[in-house]
């Protein structure tokens, strides 16, 4: 990213940074950034957040707090984010357009800023049909692109979406957006990323990448459009837990490509227990097999990070170890990304 994008002092926090969050500083300094996902619990237990934060502390530059992910009610992203701040980590608040209109989004973000949150990921949100309240009414007053634009103007122009000026401090966020490089129509994806960058996205976290050559082709187009110089792109990675999970994602999750070769490697890790039915395996067998699969999943994830790091325009990785935050430490260490840089 060129310095020109932040040279306008009107648009900075007065210290040369848009916001001055750790994530922004790490990226601006040219370090390969690491963010990790923390899924809030389906209850009101702050201890869960503290425990997961403890697993991630020191191994990432920002912690993504999901916002009712897969449309299942969970502790709010901002509530969980406040706990993460208390634990001394830096949250990346996820905000979807599914559950809130423009009034609610803006007021929640004022609160998030007041509580010390500085990074924001703007998403449209999984449709409520997938979750545990499929009879709910959705909102979608805005879409993710409009959300990026709104929070960027909130920071740079100190205005609300309606055009009213802030009276008092504005909410300043380092603004992120998602990208789905492999979703259809594939040819349009780099251009949709361009729209997000034009709307103001400072960083991008992509959908899970398992097919590096396909992602490299996407990045080629992204570089052709010059987008890697206008935003920081963090490639999404996630450790596979089992061959079943790999097959499920390949066949059932739109926009995720899992090469057969990776599925075969996962299966091979469980070879000592292959060909046996579930009831032929003892509990110990199942634990040992799961351990073998998970070790392979972590190893593959490390390899993916190393390959992605070689692609020009990739500024970091976003690790999505869903309900497996303990995997982040071995992945970051294994990929040679530990310790994380001190940026003050």
């Amino acid at each position: 990213m060129s310095d020109e994008t932040v040279s306008n002092e009107q648009k900075t926090a007065g210290n040369g940074y848009l916001v001055g969050s750790t994530l922004e500083k790490v990226l601006r300094a040219g370090h390969f950034a690491v963010t990790a996902e923390l899924g809030p619990p389906q209850n009101a237990d702050s201890a869960v957040i503290r425990k997961k934060a403890g697993l991630l502390k020191g191994y990432c530059d920002g912690v993504n707090l999901t916002d009712n992910q897969t449309a299942i009610v969970r502790m709010s992203s901002i509530g969980a984010g406040a706990i993460v701040v208390q634990e001394g980590l830096e949250p990346v608040i996820q905000m979807t357009c599914r559950d809130r209109n423009r009034l609610a989004i803006q007021s929640d973000l004022l609160g998030a800023y007041a509580l010390g949150m500085r990074n924001l990921l703007c998403l449209s949100g999984d449709h409520q049909t997938f979750g545990n309240h499929p009879t709910a009414k959705n909102v979608f007053d805005m879409d993710s692109l409009q959300l990026v634009q709104m929070v960027t103007e909130m920071r740079d122009e100190a205005v609300f979406q309606c055009g009213d000026k802030f009276k008092g401090p504005e909410a300043r966020f380092f603004v992120g957006a998602a990208a789905a490089p492999f979703a259809d129509p594939v040819d349009f994806r780099p251009y949709r990323l361009a729209k997000k960058v034009k709307a103001g996205a400072n960083f991008i976290q992509t959908q899970l990448v398992y097919d590096v050559p396909a992602f490299a082709r996407y990045m080629e187009k992204v570089r052709e459009l010059g987008l890697h110089e206008q935003t920081y792109i963090l490639a999404g990675v996630g450790p596979l837990k089992s061959p079943g999970m790999a097959r499920y994602m390949k066949n059932n999750v739109p926009g995720i490509l899992v090469p057969d070769e990776l599925i075969a490697r996962m299966s091979a890790a469980g070879k000592p227990w292959a060909g046996k039915k579930k009831d032929e395996l003892t509990r110990e067998d199942r634990i040992a097999r799961s351990k073998a699969w998970k070790a392979k999943g972590i190893q593959i994830c490390i390899e993916l990070i190393q390959q992605l790091r070689q692609i020009e325009g990739v500024s970091g990785v976003h690790i999505m170890a869903i309900e497996w935050e303990a995997a982040v430490k071995p992945i970051v260490e294994g990929a040679g990304l530990s310790p994380r840089p001190e940026v003050g």
């Binding site: 997938f130 879409d143 129509p185």
Partner: peptide, 19 residues
């Protein structure tokens, strides 16, 4: 399904909606 004005979202696959 999301009434997006700047679509498509990441849930578009082979011409159909993820829902």
């Amino acid at each position: 399904s999301k009434s997006l004005l700047n679509g498509p979202c990441g849930g578009s696959e082979a011409g159909h909606c993820e829902i």
